[in-house]
Nucleic acid binder design. Structure first.
Length: 454
DNA sequence: AAATCGGGGTG
DNA sequence: CACCCAGATTT
């Protein structure tokens, strides 16, 4: 068969199949460019079933571009909580403000203007232009590259940028006249429902007859894709600090920096236990030094807390990092009278353990990442900085750690400080937390860590 | 071109 | 357990 014939077979049969088999999805019920836009951002690297409830709630709370543009960013982030890739939420709102200022609140319809919106790349621009405005632009995502690589037996590595460009040219040629809206969605629908990654349903595929990949027996080996680098392991020590006195019934949380991992999300305080010098692998730290490090870090950030014992272990997997968390239940201590005692005990506990470990034992650095830290909450103890030159993941000699634990906090009054807050259960519905901390804090408020072993 | 950026479903 | 998902942005 000729290539042109193969292309026509594909377009005609795929489109016919889609008109019968298309799913009824919330963003397909109205032809609203704003709905299309929001859905496409949410669907980036995220499954349809996951997105549906988020989309419905988001549109309910922010029904128009203007409503989104005028909302507090905190509310937008809260609506994104648990969906991941939180820069999507912040970019989406920034783009809504772009649309208000540059386009009077109406979605632009020309490619340069759509592409210029924050968070809109090659795929999403094509998706918006074709789905919302029926413009003959390709929308090449992972589904499309998988379908095309199989049907046309394309051996190019789909991780390469040049391959995506090649696919876009091909996908553009396949769009039937005047049918970009349906055809582009058909292409993705086929990838999601039939031409699936591991076990494609070739027997029910509308284009199986002329699928070069299937005919060659290559449907399971396509697309060609270089393997991703495995995520690096990190051991982290987490504090659930139970408030006393004025903070009774509350727990200590902090907000992450404006950029980087989980930007502007709230979390429990935690420190990185640096990998052992020899193996360079993250390994659990014994409870005593772990609690000493945690007490020392909290102290250095302006909080007096006594670690009581291990509450639980937890794991959180990112694309590029795996957090193994040791979670310790701590209690807030009276600042003036008991703090020196806490520091001394922390040092004694650390030294006792360090003596039993060979060479350079595991140690810690402040987190998150390389940001310097100090408390900025009025009413808390003095703002301090543990060590401005200390980067996340750097090694510390045990003696340095002891010094840190015993060091007298000093005000720096500079740099981007993290905001710490004491919160109760009622505060959880306004602040956005990553899922791992959402679970840990909810469990704490539910009484799950009431008794710990110390 | 390679890293960074979440979280969960699937075989 | 590995793989991948309606990718974009930064370096």
């Amino acid at each position: 068969m000729g290539l042109q014939e193969q292309k026509q077979h594909f377009s005609v049969n795929l489109l016919d199949w889609y008109m019968v088999n298309r799913r009824d999805l919330p963003w397909r019920r109205h032809n609203n460019p704003y709905f299309t836009w929001v859905s496409e951002i949410m669907l980036q690297q995220t499954r349809v079933d996951t997105v549906i409830p988020y989309f419905n709630r988001f549109i309910g709370n922010f029904p128009t571009v203007q409503a989104l543009a005028e909302a507090p960013e905190e509310d937008v982030l809260k609506n994104w909580e648990g969906l991941g890739y939180y820069s999507r939420a912040r970019n989406l709102q920034a783009a809504a403000r772009q649309v208000m200022e540059l386009h009077g609140g109406e979605m632009p319809q020309d490619k340069p203007a759509v592409f210029a919106l924050k968070g809109v790349g090659p795929y999403t621009a094509g998706a918006i232009l074709s789905i919302a405005f029926n413009q003959p632009q390709p929308a090449v995502d992972g589904n499309v590259m998988r379908v095309l690589s199989r049907y046309f037996l394309i051996d190019e590595d789909i991780m390469k940028g040049s391959t995506r460009v090649l696919m876009e040219e091909l996908a553009g040629e396949l769009i039937p006249e005047g049918r970009a809206r349906d055809f582009n969605q058909a292409l993705m629908e086929l990838g999601a429902l039939v031409c699936t990654p591991k076990a494609p349903h070739c027997l029910t595929c509308p284009v199986m007859e002329q699928c070069s990949g299937r005919i060659a027996g290559r449907e399971l080996t396509l697309p060609v894709k270089t393997k991703a680098k495995p995520p690096r392991p990190e051991q982290r020590l987490v504090a659930i600090v139970e408030g006393r006195g004025a903070h009774r019934g509350q727990v200590l949380v902090r907000q992450r920096p404006d950029t980087g991992l989980l930007a502007r999300m709230w979390e429990l305080p935690h420190v990185l236990a640096a990998p052992a010098a020899a193996s360079k692998k993250a390994a659990p730290l014994a409870d005593e030094p772990a609690m000493a490090l945690l007490a020392g870090s909290l102290w250095a950030e302006g909080f007096a807390a006594r670690p009581e014992g291990l509450a639980t272990h937890a794991e959180h997997v990112f694309s590029h990092i795996v957090w193994s968390l040791q979670v310790y239940k701590c209690t807030e201590q009276d600042q003036s009278s008991e703090l020196p005692l806490i520091a001394a005990e922390a040092r004694a506990a650390y030294d006792a353990q360090a003596a039993t470990r060979e060479g350079t034992a595991s140690s810690s650095a402040v987190s998150p990442e390389s940001d310097t830290m100090h408390s900025s909450e009025p009413g808390t103890p003095n703002a301090q900085n543990i060590a401005t030159s200390l980067n996340d993941g750097e090694m510390l000699a045990p003696s340095d750690v002891s010094d840190l634990v015993l060091s007298t906090p000093t005000l720096t009054g500079k740099g981007d400080g993290l905001t710490y807050r004491w919160i109760g259960p009622e505060d959880m519905d306004k602040m956005a937390f990553p899922n791992i901390f959402l679970k840990l804090i909810s469990s704490y408020f539910a009484g799950a860590y009431d008794q710990v072993n110390d």
